[in-house]
Simulated assay, not measured.
Amino acid sequence: MTLSHPAYGRLRAVTETASVLLADNPGQMTLDGTNTWLLRAPGRSEYVVVDPGPEDHAHTDAIVRETGGAIALTLITHHHPDHTDGIDRLVELTGTPVRAVEPRFLRGKGTPLADGEVLEAAGLRITVVSTPGHTEDSVSFLLDDAVLTGDTVLGSGTTVLEGRDGALGDYLDSMDHLVELAEGRALLPAHGPDHPAADPVLRYYIRHRQERLDQIREALRVLGADASPEQVVERVYADVDESLWPAAQHSVQAQLSYLRSRN
């Protein structure tokens, strides 16, 4: 039987080289849960794991079961705990080395991931693409037939940005870079459903971000140039569940910083 998203705890094949295990950690920020990607070339016995997911023994045990514990390398898209809290148990059970941008997540003898680095494991060539914006350490992974985008691009909804200065400029640059690289490839996100073509999703994300910027410009025209992120959120996100407003404030802060730096 062919599985469709969401399918908790069951390996779902997506492309010739990528299958996914969905962690049972749904929520407002995780959508249906965290996607743990299992990658390998046809005919190979070892796997590359991308994002071990949360600290959930059932999920980690499912990764071990489906890989037979034969994990050549584990990769991390960014530091958030729903992607990284499962690292230590997976290492304990399989001995997998772990690579990430942030040194605190490294296990084994590997070094921090570098933009443009090409990894060879499980019969695959995987290119590391720096895609900051959601977090400073966010990276995507480029395969011949797909791009794994972590939380930089989700399978549904939109991405929350860091509130730091420069986050939106970084994010827009990341999106433009992904558009250049992703033509003809599937989109494999860390949350939400996968998509057979990355390009339309990426272009939607860029349009959406520009539309939000226009809405914030209008809000500043009404509220005044010195309006706070809280005031802007109340106006621009009035149709969004208020429980999501704190997260929206991070994105709004990044967008206000972006607009004010250009005035």
Rank of each mutant, 00 (worst) to 15 (best):
L3Y: 14
L3F: 14
Y8K: 05
R10H: 15
L11M: 12
T17A: 14
S19M: 08
P26L: 01
P26M: 00
Q28F: 08
D32M: 04
N35Y: 06
W37V: 13
L39D: 13
P42V: 00
P42T: 04
E55I: 08
H57P: 13
T60I: 15
E66M: 12
E66H: 15
G68C: 11
G69D: 15
A70Y: 05
I71Y: 03
I71P: 13
T74E: 12
L75E: 05
L75C: 03
H80F: 11
H83Y: 08
T84P: 06
V91Y: 13
G95H: 13
P103N: 01
P103W: 09
F105E: 05
G110M: 04
L113Y: 14
D115P: 14
E117N: 08
E120L: 01
L124H: 10
V128N: 10
V128P: 14
V129L: 15
V129I: 15
S130K: 11
T135M: 10
E136A: 15
E136G: 13
S138T: 09
S138G: 11
V139P: 08
L142Q: 12
L143E: 07
D144S: 10
G150M: 03
G150L: 12
D151V: 00
D151E: 09
S156E: 13
T158L: 05
D165I: 05
G166W: 00
G166T: 04
A167W: 04
G169R: 10
L172C: 03
S174G: 10
L181I: 14
G184T: 13
R185D: 08
L187H: 01
L188E: 01
H191F: 04
G192W: 05
G192L: 00
P193G: 06
V201R: 10
R203P: 00
E211R: 09
Q215T: 01
R217Q: 11
E218C: 02
E218A: 12
L220M: 12
V222W: 02
V222S: 01
A227G: 03
S228Q: 02
S228I: 02
S228C: 05
P229Q: 10
Q231W: 05
V232L: 12
V232F: 15
V236Y: 10
Y237V: 02
D239M: 04
A247L: 03
H250M: 07
A254G: 15
L256P: 14
Y258E: 10
R260E: 14
R260P: 15
S261T: 14
N263C: 12
